[in-house]
Amino acid sequence: MKWLIVGALIALPLAAQDIKMPASLERLREKASEVVDVTLDASMLQLASRFLSDKGDQAKAKKLVSGLKGIYVRSFEFDRAGEWEPADLEPLRAQLKTAPWTRIVGVVSNKKGENAEVYIKSENGQITGLTVIAAEPRELTIVNIVGFVDPDQLADLGGHFGIPRLEKKQGQKD
């Protein structure tokens, strides 16, 4: 019983993050020249939301954030290429290959060595999670958004508050 509890604790994701950031990625901190690490759980999102204005762009962002339980960003920048390997991402991808996750966008540029993927998590017909993996030779960024992500609201933010216009159509896979 004790071992089951310990195992369960090890398997638990951090806070309410619904994917577990693998150790292979956390180790990249030591190699990175710059690291951006943003962890906003439900309470922090609620706190931040209180300080968003009720007008204009911030009001839209406030509405978007109201359905979210967490936003997690890890972004690593490196001085040179080759500091990270595709194998570093495999434990993360393994979590996203099974239901309820679905990959909706996969773009690979062998020439530039760039790879970008967008996954959504669906439950009962609603999108309850979004994960973006953006990989470049000298930069690796993972974004995990937990909660009710409304693509309409995300698209509605397009052109404002720094959010791009994101079409709701499915992307092509390479």
């Binding site: 951006v36 943003v38 906003l40 922090m44 999102l45 706190l47 931040a48 939301s49 209180r50 300080f51 968003l52 962002a61 954030v65 936003i71 960003v73 972004s75 966008v105 773009v107 540029s109 970008a116 967008v118 973006v132 953006a134 960024t141 974004v143 958004i145 933010l157 508050f161 720094g162 959010i163 791009p164 216009r165 994101l166 079409e167 992307g171 092509q172």
Partner: peptide
């Protein structure tokens, strides 16, 4: 102070997310 810090983190997270999504969209 904590609220403003949280708001700044939120803005940063949204900006990073938007930059990546924008790049993906342009590629597509």
């Amino acid at each position: 102070v904590q609220g403003e810090a949280a708001k700044a983190k939120l803005e940063l997270a949204l900006r990073i997310t938007s930059a990546k999504l924008q790049k993906i969209q342009k590629t597509i």
